[in-house]
């Protein structure tokens, strides 16, 4: 169920685009839905981030696994135990760009029936980093459809991406890596029993969606070629707020576009928000200076206290009579 429902949801989206183009709803699928999706994406992401920013961080909870700043002759581990903003920036950069905490992933398993051993497990990190970087480059390559004249750096990017010169149009390595990595991450969810147990429909849906996007993109480029000039005309119309619907663009393009729109619109409501969330994780972005400074819980309110001085003030005479020593006569 958890796999089939999102699978058929993606199939339904594909069929919806096919039926929509057959019913001549090109303007709806080529302009209205993409605009709406982008609107939801941008404002949804900002809304989520602002909502997160409203929650206070009650405790100083950076995770550390290195020597804290201490006496001058003890070497501090600045990345694992940051004591300043610069250290935190370095730590965050490595986290965001190289998925450092995922690299530390370990796996426990029973050996010989009774021995429980831990070992390094880099497959998730490898699949994750391949997936994210391939997706980033694929996304950047699409700028060629949104910028006229195409910026020069995109030619360099494409030259590297297609340097294998396999076939015509040249095979882009990132397209293959993206699809393969997404397929790997999907198979991992199915084949590893523990991961399968904790996987929800919300985990499978983005994977199916992205696999669908990559597959339709690859089909359009290498197999049933779509009219790329028409596609750019449409894209340029969209970014210029002057949408045009070229007749030469086939329905496979609208399937691709609807899946992308679905991904964008779904983004702010889903786990994909880890794009913004990674920057807001307190275990990574806080300075480990709990011994230097007191971290005050922001939602602390002033508490009414009755100090000993006030207590003595109230009961001094009675205390003296009972021969209890007082601080002030």
């Amino acid at each position: 169920m958890k796999i089939l429902v999102p699978f058929f949801a993606v199939i339904a989206l594909v069929l919806l685009a096919v039926i929509g183009t057959a019913a001549n709803l090109h303007f709806l699928f080529g302009a209205v839905i993409p605009y709406a999706a982008l609107f939801i994406f941008i404002f949804g992401v900002i809304y989520r981030v602002l909502k997160w920013a409203k929650s206070p961080v009650p405790f100083c909870i950076p995770t550390t696994c290195g020597q804290q700043k201490s006496l001058p002759w003890i070497k501090q581990n600045k990345l694992e135990n940051p004591s300043g903003t610069l250290h935190v920036i370095g730590r965050m950069a490595l986290e965001v760009l190289t998925f450092r905490s995922l690299f530390r992933n370990i796996k426990g398993e029973l050996r010989d029936g009774s021995k429980f051993v831990y070992g390094s497990d880099k497959w998730l990190w490898l699949g994750g980093i391949a997936f994210h970087y391939a997706f980033l480059i694929v996304l950047l390559r699409h700028i060629r459809l949104f910028a006229e004249p195409t910026p020069a750096y995109l030619y360099i990017l494409e030259a590297f991406d297609g340097f294998l010169q396999i076939g015509i149009p040249r095979l882009f390595a990132t397209g293959v890596v993206l699809l393969a990595a997404a397929a790997f991450l999907f198979l991992r969810r199915i084949y590893v029993p523990q991961v399968r147990y904790i996987s929800l429909a919300a985990d499978y849906f983005p994977l199916f969606l992205i696999m669908g996007i990559a597959a339709t993109g690859i089909i359009m480029r290498y197999f049933f070629k779509t009219d790329i000039v028409g596609v750019k005309e449409l894209a340029m119309g969209l970014v210029g707020f002057n949408p045009v619907i070229p007749k030469s663009v086939g329905s496979i393009f609208y399937v691709h576009l609807l899946l992308v729109s679905a991904l964008f619109a779904y983004f702010p409501f889903s786990k994909l928000m880890h794009m913004g969330g990674v920057f807001l994780s307190p275990t990574r972005n806080m300075v480990a200076n709990s011994r230097e400074f007191r971290h005050v819980n922001p939602w602390n309110y002033p508490v009414k206290v009755h100090t000993y001085e006030e207590y003595e003030e109230d009961f001094r005479e009675k205390m003296k009579m009972a021969e209890i020593p007082v601080e002030k006569e």
């Binding site: 982008l38 994406f41 941008i42 992401v45 700028i143 949104f146 910028a147 006229e148 894209a235 340029m236 970014v239 210029g240």
Partner: peptide, 8 residues
């Protein structure tokens, strides 16, 4: 996110 729009 808005690069394609202001770029054009």
């Amino acid at each position: 996110a808005a690069f394609p729009f202001y770029n054009n």
